[in-house]
Design a protein around this nucleic acid. Structure first.
Lengths: 340, 340
DNA sequence: CTGAAAGCGCTTACAG
DNA sequence: CTGAAAGCGCTTACAG
């Protein structure tokens, strides 16, 4: 690497002090003669000078950098959120670090430390659910916006969805289509808020439906494996011969895909054997066999909104993001998997 | 934010100089008394001192940070590569900046400038194809590894796939299944190497097949829109009534999905109306209707390999990554879309 | 094995 | 409108 041109070189060549160059770099043109401004512009152009962001950050304690910590980068849900974050940040000149905690609280807290050491200006976190205390403290020091998953303590800014509404839409849809038995499939809830909320919502709604003789059940999967799902399917869909009209709801995209694969392996036909609703309207949910009725989450918007809230706080010089909890509405998209 | 504890504070509290603390931080234990090491360890622990990476980077010109510039973060292909990069980097303590150029050469070059200003240690780029010269020069200054797409000039390290092999597998498969007319669907090739290579490969292979009376055609899509694809399908699949046995190959995942959607809208039945092979074995290609025969690319491995090559160079103190061009093999996965 | 000192490339009151 | 000077928090020869 050839020797870097520093601000000193530009100052020398322009016949002004480094302070003035710095002012120019920071767009403080009001306090500067037009002639000097023009001169500096020329010199910078001709020397091909590029400011060193690391030095600027060290001095100004502003890095124009945001840490994004995702619990599972493989989930299309996370990617859509990431895209929302990326675009919102790029629009304001912020660059993002991307970390993948893989649902490990230990990794998550390590990443938080690393990002702190890199002096990021703020955090967008889709938390594992295992660092509530750490994140609450973090949010006291530096702007933090949570996406998709909330934490149980502290007043931390979050953007998520109305999970009760989501499950409600799914349950209502099933009942309208004549189901008299409902089963909810969920990944292990741990301390992950949307999972807890969805299971809770289902409990509440199932209790209401029970009054009208609707049966219900809940299955939690510690690990999402096709075989495990197939096994459970075998158990609950055996009812199809008993004249029961079964409706199955899966509470996230990964699990929805697993149900589709398990059904295929086990030879179940959807919607003949059971109606099925998944979560997350991925780009492929309209071309599966059958096409998938889903609860669609505004993923892009979740990411973009969170990033914008964070940056709004940053631009106002706040030490923390507005601790407001936003809950965006979801939508049911009816397709063939619930065709009666 | 409470005042940061600096190395000076630790030095004071430990009764040594900042130089010694710095040595400790950098693991230079050989040149240090065991007693001092232990003492420093204690002090750092009790003060909760965290080194400032920005300052370290400014001084040492090493940021332990790598820029990843993706041409389309929405493509599952990119995500899988990103995952490979992320894991390889995390394994060596490197953090990644993620930039999405959205196939815009202008954005791509802007991102390169930004990342340079942030003093990243290296670049992993899935290029738009519009900055060959810039990237070639870049690679002379700093380690660069290209993923998926190569550039036409300069000796730059790259990890991609054997595209001739991929198309060859697809064409052979079609012929074995009795096709006598082959059509290749490709997004606009621009200067994107795998697209060019795939179209070229098809040309070569189609010419060979022509000797045996096999017909062939190529359609390039400027923009991938369902309607445009449906229109082309209408034109070429009209042949199905002429007793011709048609095989269609789409050269990337996004386009494959579009073909599936277009076929559905237009009422074409795959594989009855035509056989179909897509590129990229996404997690959902086994549950589409019909399940998809694909050319599977080792996406995770592409990313991981590129990142490891880059880091290997970095660790050896090289200014540039080994300018070797790696081409990984692809695989054909046969499913229902080519069932005869 | 350890320290004093210079310096990485900027920004920021302060003074004029 | 502009400059001199201090300093952000480290690392690195150099010297002992």
């Amino acid at each position: 690497m050839k020797k870097q041109i520093a601000i000193r070189d530009v100052a020398l060549a322009s016949g002004v002090s480094t302070a003035t160059i710095s002012r120019y770099l920071n767009g403080k043109f009001q306090s500067m003669g037009e002639d000097t401004r023009l001169r500096i512009e020329k010199v910078i152009e001709s020397m091909g000078y590029k400011p060193n962001d690391v030095a600027r950050t060290l001095r100004s304690t502003k890095s124009n950098t945001i840490a994004v910590i995702l619990s599972d980068i493989l989930n299309p849900y996370s990617i859509a959120i990431l895209q929302g974050i990326e675009e919102a940040c790029a629009g304001f000149g912020y660059t993002i670090f991307v970390c993948n905690s893989k649902e490990s609280p230990a990794k998550e807290s390590q990443f938080i430390e690393m990002m702190l050491a890199k002096r990021v200006d703020g955090f967008v976190i889709n938390t594992t659910g295992g660092n509530d205390e750490l994140i609450a403290k973090l949010a006291d020091e530096i702007p933090v916006a949570l996406v998709g998953r909330k934490i149980s303590q502290g007043a931390v800014c979050s953007v998520s969805v109305d999970n009760f509404q989501g499950v409600n839409l799914a349950v209502d849809h099933m009942l309208q289509r004549g189901c008299d038995s409902l089963v909810l499939l969920s990944p292990a809830t741990h301390h992950i808020s949307p999972r807890i909320e969805r299971v809770e919502a289902f409990r509440t709604l199932a209790a209401r439906a029970a009054v009208n003789g609707i049966q219900s059940d809940i299955h939690i999967f510690e690990k999402i494996q096709i075989e495990a799902v197939a096994e459970v399917l075998e158990k609950i869909a055996g009812r199809r011969f008993s004249g029961v009209r079964l409706g199955i709801i899966a509470t996230n995209g990964i699990l929805s895909l697993a149900v589709l694969k398990a059904a295929k392996i086990s030879g179940y036909i959807i919607p003949a054997d059971f109606l099925f609703i998944g979560f997350d309207d991925t780009e492929w949910s309209s071309v599966t066999n059958p096409s998938l009725t889903v609860i669609s989450q505004p993923t892009y918007q979740i990411g973009a909104t969170a990033a914008k809230k964070l940056i709004a706080g940053l631009l106002n010089g706040h030490k923390k993001a507005e601790p407001e909890c936003l809950e965006l509405p979801v939508q049911l998209i009816a397709r063939d998997s619930t065709l009666r």
